[in-house]
């Protein structure tokens, strides 16, 4: 329990510190033109969120596949030496198959989103 307490304390500390830091400066009495986003003078009708989209969904899918793979890798790393060559072969297969995914994704152009 205590091992996990320290990171929590640190988080609280850091957040509080940064919060306090941002409270230091004087209150800004910003006017509307000051606040408006850079738009060459135009006024946005929508939230920025609605005007720009991330276009790399396929890439994120690939990422999730590897991220899941990662999760299985943590326990694997711990027992790796005990299990020996078999573990190497298994992970090799695993990564090999996922690598085909990368290749396919590359071919399909999922890394070009703009």
């Amino acid at each position: 329990m205590t091992e996990i307490a320290m990171p929590l304390v640190l988080v609280l500390l850091a957040v509080a510190f940064a919060w306090g830091l941002q409270r230091l400066g004087p209150e800004a009495g910003a006017t509307w033109p000051h606040r408006a986003p850079f738009l060459g003078g135009g006024v946005p009708q929508t939230h920025a969120w609605q005007r720009w989209h991330a276009r790399y969904y396929p890439m994120t899918l690939l990422f999730i596949a590897f991220e899941m793979e990662m999760m299985f890798m943590y326990p694997w790393a711990v027992v790796y030496i005990e299990t020996g060559t078999k573990a190497l072969a298994e992970m090799g297969m695993f990564l090999g198959i996922l690598s085909v995914g990368i290749l396919y994704g590359w071919r399909e152009g999922v890394f070009r989103w703009q």
Binding site: V100, G101, Y104, R107
Partner: peptide, 13 residues
Amino acid sequence: LIAGALAALLMAM
């Protein structure tokens, strides 16, 4: 089956 799937995928590429 896995091998076949991979082969098909590589071919598709």
